[in-house]
C-alpha cells in the first residue's frame, strides 16, 4: 500500500496510492504515512500532489494535524478555503488564533494578495455549561477569533462510539446530535442557508428509562 510520502517522493503514482472508500462511492482517501517521518514532505511535493488531485476531484479535503507545527502549515499552504476546528478551551482557541494569522499570511493565496476563505467550526460545545458560565460561549469565541461560524457540534458520547468502531459519526448514527451538526455545517459550506442552532439529543421514553436504569 502506498501513501502520500511515496507519491511526493515519486516512488508511486497518485492512482496507486488513492483508496476508494467502502461506504461512499465518490470518496477517495490518500493516506498520510503513519510510520515515516513527515519531514520527507516538501512544499513543492505537496503542491504537485494537490495540483494533480485538482484535475480529478471537485473537493479536496486536506486534514491538518492539530496545533501550529510544520504539518499544519504544509496542509494549509495551497488551500482555497479553510475550516478551523476549535473547541471552547483556552489552548484550542489560542492555537486557532495563530492558525488564522498564518492563513492570512503564510498561504500561497495570501502571498498572491488573495484571501483564503475561513470558516470556524466549534466542537465539543455544551450549551448548558456555557449558559452557566462554566464554558466559553459561542459569542466569546466569535468575538475573539472574528471568523464566520460554520457550525456548532455539541459535546456527545456518540463521537467516541463512532470513533471506536472506525466510522464517522455522520454514518454511524446520522440522527445523533453531532451528526446533524456536521451535516448542517457541510450544507452551509456548500452554500445553503441554515439557521445556526446547536442540535440536541432526541430522547425517546424508552431511551430515558433505559438510561436511568443503566445509571
Amino acid at each position: 500500500m502506498f501513501d502520500l510520502i511515496n507519491v511526493v517522493q515519486g516512488v508511486a503514482k497518485l492512482p496507486q496510492a488513492l483508496i476508494r472508500d467502502k461506504r461512499l462511492e465518490n470518496l477517495w482517501l490518500l493516506p498520510a504515512s503513519q510510520t515515516r517521518d513527515k519531514d520527507a514532505l516538501t512544499e513543492e511535493g505537496i503542491n504537485r500532489v494537490i495540483a494533480d488531485l485538482r484535475t480529478k476531484f471537485d473537493w479536496i479535503l486536506c486534514d491538518s494535524p492539530a496545533g501550529i507545527e510544520r504539518g499544519a502549515t504544509l496542509a494549509m499552504r495551497y488551500a482555497d478555503e479553510a475550516i478551523i476546528v476549535t473547541n471552547p478551551e483556552v489552548s484550542s482557541v489560542r492555537d486557532s488564533d495563530r492558525i488564522i494569522g498564518m492563513l492570512d499570511s503564510k498561504t500561497v493565496r495570501a502571498e498572491r494578495g488573495e484571501r483564503v476563505e475561513k470558516h470556524l467550526l466549534v466542537t465539543r460545545y455544551d450549551a448548558a455549561r456555557a449558559a452557566r458560565g462554566e464554558m466559553l460561549s459561542i459569542d466569546d469565541i466569535l468575538e475573539i477569533l472574528a471568523t464566520p461560524l460554520l457550525g456548532i457540534v455539541p459535546e456527545s458520547q456518540d463521537v467516541l462510539k463512532a470513533s471506536n468502531v472506525g466510522s464517522p459519526v455522520t454514518l454511524n448514527n446520522a440522527n445523533s446530535a453531532p451528526a446533524r451538526a456536521y451535516i448542517d455545517a457541510v450544507r452551509r459550506l456548500m452554500g445553503e442557508t441554515i439557521a445556526m442552532t446547536v442540535p440536541v439529543e432526541r430522547k425517546g421514553l424508552m431511551d430515558r428509562l433505559l438510561r436511568r436504569r443503566a445509571a
Binding site: 471552547p88 478551551e89 458560565g133 466569546d140 475573539i144
Partner: peptide, 12 residues
C-alpha cells in the same frame, strides 16, 4: 456560582 468562563476569556 461564579463560572470559570470569564477567567478563560480574560486569559485568552
Amino acid at each position: 456560582r461564579a463560572g470559570s468562563a470569564p477567567v478563560a476569556r480574560e486569559r485568552l
